[in-house]
């Protein structure tokens, strides 16, 4: 509350790190909760996610904590089986663009050749103006909604192809921007004077400093990809039924929401737990909010 940190010399005495640590811990706990549940629940509860275990549209009970869906499958086991798939796809969907975009952006940022920079930036300009979902739908259409690469279910390759083709642009922009800032700092400009090779400057000096920026964005990107995968079934794309997937469970639930809210809402709840955790982790990594009081 006090703004004593504004007084030179007193800034270090302010315990500003504590609430952020708490935010980080709560965030990680929430994410871990969803991840661990998705890993272990299908191990201990051996119900087949596609088996018809009870009457359709049964409300939550002890036997079926999230109730049953339109054909009588157990929603509980379906939600957490879906969690495995959605989380795996999200991680795969983030890692490839993260690595490719970071390296490309750093190289472009470090390069003195303007041409490469202009070409890549104009390309990303064009992509950024494009409504992401339309591009993804088109790519899904090209790859084919039925395309499959075992062990991934039908529809997964098209989703991955779409995120890989589009998402690297954001990472490349971030990395390029960060590299431009770094280049003005002394320790990087000194490496030029010392005669270090370009490759060495990039791998030993630039990348280690660019990395944290793009990786932080990747955490929030995980959430966007989960949301994207879950949105596609509403638009006729994405993971094809009967595979359990968060989006297709919610889409199925939308049709019967007036009779069976639990089908959509159990999934919404789990995704919100995950999402809130992700937002908290991101906030704790980037935000600096110190309160000043209006006099």
């Amino acid at each position: 509350m006090t703004a004593a940190a504004q007084v030179p010399g007193l800034a270090s005495a302010q315990p500003t790190t504590r609430p952020k640590q708490l935010e980080l811990r709560v965030g990680i706990t929430l994410i871990a909760l969803v991840v661990l549940a998705s890993i272990f629940i299908p191990i201990f509860n051996t119900t087949d996610p596609n088996a018809l275990v009870a009457a359709p549209l049964e409300p939550p009970s002890l036997a079926h904590p999230f109730g049953t869906d339109t054909v009588g499958r157990d929603v509980f086991i379906r939600v957490f089986t879906a969690g495995r798939l959605d989380l795996t796809l999200a991680v795969l969907g983030v890692i490839v663009p993260l690595v490719f975009g970071t390296i490309l952006g750093t190289v472009i940022g470090a390069s003195r050749k303007k041409a490469l920079d202009v070409v890549v930036m104009r390309f990303t300009d064009g992509l950024i103006a494009f409504p992401f979902i339309i591009l993804v739908l088109m790519i899904v259409l090209i790859v084919g909604p039925e395309a499959t690469i075992p062990p991934l279910p039908p529809g997964a390759p098209s989703v991955l192809a779409a995120t890989w083709l589009v998402n690297w642009t954001t990472y490349a922009r971030l990395a390029r921007l960060r590299t431009h800032i770094l280049r003005q700092e002394d320790f990087i400009s000194a490496t030029g004077l010392l005669g270090y090779s370009r490759t060495r400057v990039i791998t030993k000096h630039l990348l280690p400093s660019v990395w944290p920026t793009t990786a932080t964005f990747a955490v929030s990107d995980l959430l966007s990809i989960v949301a994207l995968i879950a949105a596609l079934p509403f638009l006729g794309g994405g993971i094809q039924p009967p595979t359990a997937e968060w989006g297709s469970i919610m889409y199925e639930g939308r049709g019967v929401i007036s009779q069976a809210w639990w089908i959509s809402f159990s999934t919404v709840g789990v995704v919100l737990l995950l999402g809130t955790g992700v937002m908290m982790v991101v906030d704790s990594l980037v935000s600096t909010s110190r309160r000043a009081l209006l006099p």
Partner: peptide
Amino acid sequence: GSLSTIGG
């Protein structure tokens, strides 16, 4: 009268 803005 502006000590309070820096917590003083």
